[in-house]
């Protein structure tokens, strides 16, 4: 009850001052999706959020924790079906459920292994299979390319391709998730183009933000 009241109060207080994110269609005049730390070019016909997500809530051990991040999502047919998500995790919380930091000197294969372990801790991904894991370059940085697959409760095979790299500013991933049947192949080329367009921005080198006080009300 206390949490619900706090949520209402916060919603009322913040609605007047915060920029409200919304989904927008991508066309020739509206291609670049930009966050503080990165930008990428979104293929025509996809929709994207206008503002990045800046936090997520996760169960770490038995406790609910709020983790700061930067994350932008694009989709063509709806996020429940398929999505490309670009995420920057700050070094201290790079692998939150594993309670591991990212280190600038981390080898790409180490980052890939930790990332898979991190995903397997998430609900529904316990049996995530790694189909391939190889080196890749993202924005001229040494990284990894993972191809993974899982089945949801309805038996639908969902394939995930992830590019990622680690540097002194944190851990970055570009994820493409789609049902293997039809959708995965259909949009794979769009995903590849988005990965090639990814650029890290100067803002990535600014100090990470502090967790807002209101977070304590919910965790």
């Amino acid at each position: 009850m206390k949490n619900i009241l706090a949520l209402i109060v916060m919603a009322v207080l913040t609605s007047g001052c915060a920029t409200t994110a919304y989904w927008t269609m991508t066309d020739d005049l509206n291609r670049v999706a930009q966050s503080k730390s990165f930008q990428m070019s979104v293929p025509e016909g996809w929709v994207r959020t206008t503002e990045p997500d800046t936090w997520e809530q996760l169960e770490v051990g038995d406790k609910l924790r709020t983790i700061l991040l930067e994350s932008m999502t694009v989709t063509r047919d709806g996020t429940s079906l398929h999505a490309i998500t670009v995420t920057r995790r700050y070094s201290d919380n790079a692998f939150p459920t594993l309670k591991k930091k990212s280190l600038a000197g981390m080898l790409p294969i180490e980052a890939a292994d930790l990332y898979v372990a991190e995903l397997r801790k998430r609900n529904g991904l316990e049996r995530l299979k790694v189909l391939s894991n190889k080196p890749a370059q993202v924005d001229e940085k040494q990284g990894f390319q993972l191809v993974m697959q899982y089945k949801n409760d309805d038996g639908l095979r969902v394939r995930v391709m992830s590019y990622g790299f680690v540097d002194e500013t944190g851990f970055y991933t570009i994820n493409y998730r789609a049902p293997y049947l039809y959708y995965y192949d259909r949009d794979h080329q769009d995903f590849t183009e988005l990965v090639h367009s990814f650029k890290q921005l100067q803002g990535a080198h600014e100090p990470p933000p502090k967790l807002p006080k209101w977070v304590e009300l919910f965790t």
Binding site: R127, Y150, K151, N152, D153, D154, G155
Partner: peptide
Amino acid sequence: ATIDRSGQ
């Protein structure tokens, strides 16, 4: 059936 189709 759920266990079977969800790959568990």
